[in-house]
Design a protein around this nucleic acid. Structure first.
Lengths: 162, 162
DNA sequence: TATTGTTATACTCTATAACTATA
DNA sequence: TATAGTTATAGAGTATAACAATA
Protein backbone atom coordinates (compact mmCIF):
# COMPACT_ATOMS: atom_id res chain seq x y z
CA UNK A 1 0.00 0.00 0.00
CA UNK A 2 2.99 2.32 -0.05
CA UNK A 3 3.67 4.68 -2.89
CA UNK A 4 6.02 2.20 -4.50
CA UNK A 5 3.01 0.04 -5.23
CA UNK A 6 2.27 2.07 -8.31
CA UNK A 7 4.75 1.35 -11.00
CA UNK A 8 2.43 2.34 -13.80
CA UNK A 9 2.83 6.09 -13.53
CA UNK A 10 6.38 6.44 -12.39
CA UNK A 11 9.74 5.43 -13.83
CA UNK A 12 10.70 1.91 -12.77
CA UNK A 13 13.82 1.35 -10.74
CA UNK A 14 15.13 -2.07 -11.76
CA UNK A 15 16.78 -2.63 -8.39
CA UNK A 16 13.77 -1.59 -6.45
CA UNK A 17 12.63 -4.24 -3.97
CA UNK A 18 8.93 -4.34 -3.27
CA UNK A 19 7.83 -4.52 0.34
CA UNK A 20 6.09 -7.66 1.49
CA UNK A 21 2.76 -5.88 1.63
CA UNK A 22 3.13 -4.23 -1.75
CA UNK A 23 4.31 -7.40 -3.38
CA UNK A 24 1.56 -9.56 -2.01
CA UNK A 25 -1.11 -7.00 -2.78
CA UNK A 26 0.09 -6.44 -6.32
CA UNK A 27 0.46 -10.12 -7.03
CA UNK A 28 -3.05 -10.69 -5.72
CA UNK A 29 -4.63 -7.96 -7.82
CA UNK A 30 -2.70 -9.18 -10.82
CA UNK A 31 -3.90 -12.76 -10.32
CA UNK A 32 -7.52 -11.84 -9.71
CA UNK A 33 -7.26 -9.57 -12.73
CA UNK A 34 -6.24 -12.52 -14.87
CA UNK A 35 -9.21 -14.49 -13.62
CA UNK A 36 -11.49 -11.53 -14.21
CA UNK A 37 -10.27 -11.19 -17.78
CA UNK A 38 -10.85 -14.88 -18.54
CA UNK A 39 -14.25 -14.81 -16.92
CA UNK A 40 -15.08 -11.71 -18.93
CA UNK A 41 -14.41 -13.62 -22.15
CA UNK A 42 -17.42 -15.70 -21.21
CA UNK A 43 -19.38 -12.68 -20.05
CA UNK A 44 -19.38 -13.75 -16.45
CA UNK A 45 -18.02 -12.20 -13.27
CA UNK A 46 -15.42 -13.53 -10.85
CA UNK A 47 -18.07 -14.44 -8.30
CA UNK A 48 -20.07 -16.32 -10.93
CA UNK A 49 -16.89 -18.18 -11.86
CA UNK A 50 -16.34 -19.06 -8.23
CA UNK A 51 -19.94 -20.23 -7.99
CA UNK A 52 -19.50 -22.55 -10.96
CA UNK A 53 -16.14 -23.70 -9.63
CA UNK A 54 -17.60 -24.62 -6.27
CA UNK A 55 -20.29 -26.67 -7.99
CA UNK A 56 -17.84 -28.71 -10.04
CA UNK A 57 -17.51 -31.36 -7.38
CA UNK A 58 -20.47 -30.59 -5.13
CA UNK A 59 -24.23 -30.17 -5.10
CA UNK A 60 -24.65 -28.03 -2.01
CA UNK A 61 -27.76 -26.58 -0.45
CA UNK A 62 -28.32 -22.85 -0.79
CA UNK A 63 -27.14 -22.43 2.76
CA UNK A 64 -23.94 -24.39 2.20
CA UNK A 65 -23.32 -22.47 -0.97
CA UNK A 66 -23.62 -19.15 0.82
CA UNK A 67 -21.11 -20.33 3.44
CA UNK A 68 -18.69 -21.64 0.82
CA UNK A 69 -18.73 -18.31 -0.98
CA UNK A 70 -18.80 -16.21 2.17
CA UNK A 71 -22.10 -14.60 1.30
CA UNK A 72 -25.39 -13.91 2.98
CA UNK A 73 -28.05 -16.43 1.97
CA UNK A 74 -30.05 -13.71 0.23
CA UNK A 75 -27.00 -12.85 -1.87
CA UNK A 76 -26.68 -16.51 -2.81
CA UNK A 77 -30.30 -16.49 -3.91
CA UNK A 78 -29.63 -13.64 -6.33
CA UNK A 79 -26.39 -15.18 -7.55
CA UNK A 80 -28.05 -18.51 -8.30
CA UNK A 81 -31.04 -16.72 -9.84
CA UNK A 82 -28.82 -15.03 -12.40
CA UNK A 83 -26.79 -18.16 -13.11
CA UNK A 84 -29.98 -20.18 -13.51
CA UNK A 85 -31.44 -17.60 -15.86
CA UNK A 86 -28.39 -18.15 -18.05
CA UNK A 87 -28.75 -21.91 -17.93
CA UNK A 88 -25.52 -22.50 -16.01
CA UNK A 89 -27.02 -24.06 -12.87
CA UNK A 90 -30.29 -25.62 -11.81
CA UNK A 91 -32.18 -25.79 -8.53
CA UNK A 92 -33.09 -29.29 -7.44
CA UNK A 93 -35.50 -29.96 -4.56
CA UNK A 94 -34.12 -32.12 -1.79
CA UNK A 95 -35.88 -35.43 -1.33
CA UNK A 96 -35.30 -35.56 2.42
CA UNK A 97 -36.24 -32.03 3.49
CA UNK A 98 -38.77 -30.08 1.53
CA UNK A 99 -37.37 -26.77 2.71
CA UNK A 100 -34.00 -27.46 1.15
CA UNK A 101 -32.89 -26.59 -2.37
CA UNK A 102 -29.80 -28.14 -3.93
CA UNK A 103 -27.81 -26.29 -6.57
CA UNK A 104 -26.36 -28.22 -9.45
CA UNK A 105 -24.15 -27.40 -12.42
CA UNK A 106 -25.70 -27.87 -15.87
CA UNK A 107 -23.70 -29.22 -18.78
CA UNK A 108 -23.43 -25.69 -20.12
CA UNK A 109 -22.15 -24.48 -16.78
CA UNK A 110 -19.63 -27.28 -16.57
CA UNK A 111 -18.38 -26.55 -20.07
CA UNK A 112 -18.07 -22.86 -19.32
CA UNK A 113 -16.13 -23.25 -16.10
CA UNK A 114 -13.82 -25.76 -17.78
CA UNK A 115 -12.95 -23.27 -20.50
CA UNK A 116 -12.48 -20.38 -18.11
CA UNK A 117 -10.31 -22.52 -15.85
CA UNK A 118 -8.13 -23.64 -18.72
CA UNK A 119 -7.59 -20.06 -19.79
CA UNK A 120 -6.80 -18.96 -16.28
CA UNK A 121 -4.36 -21.81 -15.79
CA UNK A 122 -2.63 -20.85 -18.99
CA UNK A 123 -2.37 -17.24 -17.79
CA UNK A 124 -0.88 -18.29 -14.48
CA UNK A 125 1.53 -20.52 -16.33
CA UNK A 126 2.64 -17.63 -18.49
CA UNK A 127 3.06 -15.44 -15.46
CA UNK A 128 5.14 -18.00 -13.62
CA UNK A 129 7.35 -18.52 -16.64
CA UNK A 130 8.85 -15.15 -15.83
CA UNK A 131 10.83 -17.04 -13.23
CA UNK A 132 13.40 -19.75 -13.83
CA UNK A 133 12.19 -23.30 -13.29
CA UNK A 134 13.96 -23.69 -9.92
CA UNK A 135 12.68 -20.34 -8.68
CA UNK A 136 9.22 -21.21 -9.89
CA UNK A 137 9.00 -24.44 -7.97
CA UNK A 138 10.50 -22.73 -4.95
CA UNK A 139 7.80 -20.07 -5.10
CA UNK A 140 4.97 -22.53 -5.57
CA UNK A 141 6.26 -24.62 -2.68
CA UNK A 142 6.52 -21.63 -0.38
CA UNK A 143 3.02 -20.44 -1.25
CA UNK A 144 1.66 -23.90 -0.66
CA UNK A 145 3.32 -24.14 2.72
CA UNK A 146 2.18 -20.67 3.66
CA UNK A 147 -1.43 -21.48 2.86
CA UNK A 148 -1.36 -24.80 4.67
CA UNK A 149 0.27 -23.24 7.73
CA UNK A 150 -2.23 -20.40 7.76
CA UNK A 151 -5.18 -22.73 7.34
CA UNK A 152 -3.92 -24.82 10.23
CA UNK A 153 -3.41 -21.76 12.40
CA UNK A 154 -6.94 -20.56 11.70
CA UNK A 155 -8.64 -23.93 11.88
CA UNK A 156 -8.83 -24.22 8.08
CA UNK A 157 -10.65 -21.40 6.46
CA UNK A 158 -9.08 -20.73 3.09
CA UNK A 159 -11.00 -19.09 0.32
CA UNK A 160 -12.33 -21.69 -2.04
CA UNK A 161 -11.78 -20.28 -5.47
CA UNK A 162 -13.28 -23.24 -7.12
CA UNK B 1 -9.20 -23.94 -9.78
CA UNK B 2 -8.99 -27.68 -9.27
CA UNK B 3 -10.98 -29.50 -6.65
CA UNK B 4 -8.10 -29.33 -4.22
CA UNK B 5 -8.67 -25.59 -4.00
CA UNK B 6 -11.37 -26.11 -1.44
CA UNK B 7 -9.93 -27.12 1.86
CA UNK B 8 -12.82 -25.77 3.88
CA UNK B 9 -15.24 -28.60 3.31
CA UNK B 10 -12.93 -31.55 3.06
CA UNK B 11 -10.46 -33.20 5.41
CA UNK B 12 -7.01 -31.64 5.08
CA UNK B 13 -4.12 -33.73 3.93
CA UNK B 14 -1.02 -32.28 5.54
CA UNK B 15 1.23 -33.55 2.77
CA UNK B 16 -0.98 -32.27 0.03
CA UNK B 17 0.84 -29.95 -2.35
CA UNK B 18 -1.26 -27.25 -3.93
CA UNK B 19 -0.93 -26.71 -7.67
CA UNK B 20 0.54 -23.45 -8.87
CA UNK B 21 -2.83 -22.21 -10.01
CA UNK B 22 -4.65 -23.21 -6.85
CA UNK B 23 -1.96 -21.77 -4.64
CA UNK B 24 -1.78 -18.46 -6.41
CA UNK B 25 -5.54 -18.13 -6.61
CA UNK B 26 -6.07 -18.99 -2.96
CA UNK B 27 -3.30 -16.71 -1.79
CA UNK B 28 -4.78 -13.91 -3.85
CA UNK B 29 -8.30 -14.35 -2.52
CA UNK B 30 -6.93 -14.61 0.98
CA UNK B 31 -4.93 -11.40 0.61
CA UNK B 32 -7.75 -9.40 -0.98
CA UNK B 33 -10.02 -10.79 1.72
CA UNK B 34 -7.73 -9.34 4.38
CA UNK B 35 -7.86 -5.97 2.66
CA UNK B 36 -11.62 -6.22 2.35
CA UNK B 37 -11.98 -6.95 6.04
CA UNK B 38 -9.83 -3.99 7.08
CA UNK B 39 -11.63 -1.69 4.68
CA UNK B 40 -14.92 -2.96 6.06
CA UNK B 41 -13.91 -1.86 9.54
CA UNK B 42 -14.05 1.65 8.16
CA UNK B 43 -17.22 0.94 6.22
CA UNK B 44 -15.56 1.30 2.87
CA UNK B 45 -15.04 -1.05 -0.04
CA UNK B 46 -11.82 -2.31 -1.60
CA UNK B 47 -12.22 0.00 -4.58
CA UNK B 48 -12.75 3.00 -2.28
CA UNK B 49 -9.60 1.98 -0.43
CA UNK B 50 -7.71 1.82 -3.71
CA UNK B 51 -9.06 5.23 -4.63
CA UNK B 52 -7.80 6.74 -1.39
CA UNK B 53 -4.50 4.89 -1.75
CA UNK B 54 -3.93 6.28 -5.23
CA UNK B 55 -4.56 9.78 -3.95
CA UNK B 56 -2.01 9.54 -1.16
CA UNK B 57 0.80 10.81 -3.34
CA UNK B 58 -1.09 12.26 -6.30
CA UNK B 59 -3.79 14.76 -7.26
CA UNK B 60 -4.88 13.34 -10.59
CA UNK B 61 -7.53 14.51 -12.99
CA UNK B 62 -10.71 12.46 -13.22
CA UNK B 63 -9.42 10.97 -16.43
CA UNK B 64 -6.08 9.98 -14.94
CA UNK B 65 -7.87 8.54 -11.95
CA UNK B 66 -10.06 6.37 -14.13
CA UNK B 67 -6.98 5.06 -15.94
CA UNK B 68 -5.11 4.40 -12.70
CA UNK B 69 -8.02 2.38 -11.36
CA UNK B 70 -8.84 0.73 -14.66
CA UNK B 71 -12.35 2.17 -14.78
CA UNK B 72 -14.54 3.98 -17.26
CA UNK B 73 -14.62 7.71 -16.57
CA UNK B 74 -18.30 7.53 -15.66
CA UNK B 75 -17.48 4.89 -13.04
CA UNK B 76 -14.83 7.21 -11.64
CA UNK B 77 -17.41 9.97 -11.41
CA UNK B 78 -19.65 7.80 -9.24
CA UNK B 79 -16.76 6.55 -7.14
CA UNK B 80 -15.56 10.08 -6.42
CA UNK B 81 -19.14 11.25 -5.82
CA UNK B 82 -19.60 8.72 -3.04
CA UNK B 83 -16.18 9.40 -1.52
CA UNK B 84 -16.82 13.14 -1.64
CA UNK B 85 -20.22 12.71 -0.01
CA UNK B 86 -18.41 11.04 2.88
CA UNK B 87 -15.84 13.81 3.13
CA UNK B 88 -12.90 11.64 2.09
CA UNK B 89 -11.93 13.48 -1.11
CA UNK B 90 -12.62 16.84 -2.72
CA UNK B 91 -12.88 18.02 -6.31
CA UNK B 92 -10.63 20.94 -7.17
CA UNK B 93 -10.98 22.88 -10.44
CA UNK B 94 -7.84 23.03 -12.56
CA UNK B 95 -6.43 26.50 -13.02
CA UNK B 96 -5.07 25.80 -16.49
CA UNK B 97 -8.01 24.05 -18.16
CA UNK B 98 -11.52 24.79 -17.06
CA UNK B 99 -12.79 21.42 -18.25
CA UNK B 100 -10.48 19.56 -15.89
CA UNK B 101 -11.26 18.49 -12.34
CA UNK B 102 -8.54 17.41 -9.92
CA UNK B 103 -9.26 14.96 -7.13
CA UNK B 104 -7.63 15.47 -3.77
CA UNK B 105 -7.56 13.57 -0.50
CA UNK B 106 -9.03 15.34 2.53
CA UNK B 107 -7.47 15.06 5.99
CA UNK B 108 -10.23 12.65 6.92
CA UNK B 109 -9.50 10.57 3.84
CA UNK B 110 -5.80 10.56 4.57
CA UNK B 111 -6.41 9.49 8.15
CA UNK B 112 -8.75 6.71 7.06
CA UNK B 113 -6.42 5.24 4.45
CA UNK B 114 -3.53 5.38 6.91
CA UNK B 115 -5.49 3.35 9.45
CA UNK B 116 -6.73 0.84 6.92
CA UNK B 117 -3.22 0.44 5.49
CA UNK B 118 -1.72 -0.10 8.92
CA UNK B 119 -4.29 -2.78 9.65
CA UNK B 120 -3.71 -4.48 6.34
CA UNK B 121 0.05 -4.41 6.79
CA UNK B 122 -0.36 -5.97 10.18
CA UNK B 123 -2.54 -8.70 8.68
CA UNK B 124 -0.02 -9.45 5.98
CA UNK B 125 2.70 -9.52 8.61
CA UNK B 126 0.73 -12.04 10.63
CA UNK B 127 0.15 -14.15 7.57
CA UNK B 128 3.81 -14.19 6.59
CA UNK B 129 4.83 -15.12 10.10
CA UNK B 130 3.48 -18.56 9.32
CA UNK B 131 6.78 -19.04 7.51
CA UNK B 132 10.24 -19.04 9.02
CA UNK B 133 12.23 -15.83 8.60
CA UNK B 134 14.46 -17.25 5.84
CA UNK B 135 11.49 -18.70 3.95
CA UNK B 136 9.66 -15.43 4.37
CA UNK B 137 12.37 -13.31 2.81
CA UNK B 138 12.81 -15.89 0.09
CA UNK B 139 9.11 -15.68 -0.73
CA UNK B 140 9.02 -11.89 -0.70
CA UNK B 141 12.08 -11.76 -2.92
CA UNK B 142 10.62 -14.22 -5.41
CA UNK B 143 7.32 -12.35 -5.56
CA UNK B 144 9.14 -9.11 -6.09
CA UNK B 145 11.21 -10.55 -8.91
CA UNK B 146 8.18 -12.13 -10.48
CA UNK B 147 6.30 -8.84 -10.51
CA UNK B 148 9.22 -6.89 -11.87
CA UNK B 149 9.86 -9.46 -14.58
CA UNK B 150 6.19 -9.52 -15.55
CA UNK B 151 5.95 -5.75 -15.61
CA UNK B 152 8.99 -5.60 -17.84
CA UNK B 153 7.60 -8.27 -20.14
CA UNK B 154 4.31 -6.40 -20.46
CA UNK B 155 5.74 -2.90 -20.68
CA UNK B 156 4.91 -2.18 -17.04
CA UNK B 157 1.28 -2.54 -16.23
CA UNK B 158 0.96 -3.73 -12.68
CA UNK B 159 -2.16 -3.10 -10.70
CA UNK B 160 -1.70 -0.12 -8.46
CA UNK B 161 -3.24 -1.09 -5.18
CA UNK B 162 -2.50 2.18 -3.61
C1' DT C 1 -40.09 -22.58 17.86
C1' DA C 2 -36.24 -23.04 14.70
C1' DT C 3 -34.53 -23.49 10.08
C1' DT C 4 -34.46 -22.92 4.90
C1' DG C 5 -34.96 -20.18 1.37
C1' DT C 6 -37.13 -16.12 -0.91
C1' DT C 7 -38.69 -11.39 -1.25
C1' DA C 8 -38.51 -6.38 -0.52
C1' DT C 9 -35.55 -2.79 -0.19
C1' DA C 10 -31.50 0.01 -0.43
C1' DC C 11 -26.98 0.75 -1.61
C1' DT C 12 -22.38 0.30 -4.16
C1' DC C 13 -20.16 -0.53 -8.34
C1' DT C 14 -19.84 -0.89 -13.26
C1' DA C 15 -20.47 0.17 -18.28
C1' DT C 16 -22.69 2.42 -22.49
C1' DA C 17 -24.58 6.26 -24.57
C1' DA C 18 -25.91 10.86 -24.65
C1' DC C 19 -25.03 15.30 -23.02
C1' DT C 20 -22.61 19.98 -21.48
C1' DA C 21 -18.75 22.85 -21.22
C1' DT C 22 -14.66 23.93 -22.64
C1' DA C 23 -10.57 23.73 -25.83
C1' DT D 1 -14.04 19.06 -33.99
C1' DA D 2 -12.03 16.95 -30.00
C1' DT D 3 -11.61 16.43 -25.05
C1' DA D 4 -13.08 16.40 -19.92
C1' DG D 5 -16.42 15.34 -17.13
C1' DT D 6 -21.31 14.45 -15.87
C1' DT D 7 -25.86 12.44 -16.30
C1' DA D 8 -29.24 8.87 -17.54
C1' DT D 9 -29.95 4.31 -17.54
C1' DA D 10 -29.45 -0.56 -16.82
C1' DG D 11 -27.68 -4.32 -14.59
C1' DA D 12 -24.77 -7.17 -11.19
C1' DG D 13 -23.70 -7.85 -6.58
C1' DT D 14 -24.25 -7.23 -1.65
C1' DA D 15 -26.59 -6.92 3.02
C1' DT D 16 -30.59 -6.35 6.33
C1' DA D 17 -35.08 -7.30 7.59
C1' DA D 18 -39.39 -9.42 6.98
C1' DC D 19 -41.73 -13.32 5.26
C1' DA D 20 -43.60 -18.26 3.92
C1' DA D 21 -43.05 -23.06 4.12
C1' DT D 22 -41.43 -26.82 6.49
C1' DA D 23 -39.28 -29.18 10.36
Amino acid sequence: MSSTADRSSRPADPDEQLSAVDGLAQLSFLTIGLLERRAGEHRISVIQTRLLGVLRDRTPTMNELATLLGLDKSSATGLVDRAERRGLVTRVPSSSDRRVVLVQLTDAGRALVAEASAGFESDVGTLLERLSAPDRSLLVGLISRLLVADADANGVDLFPLA
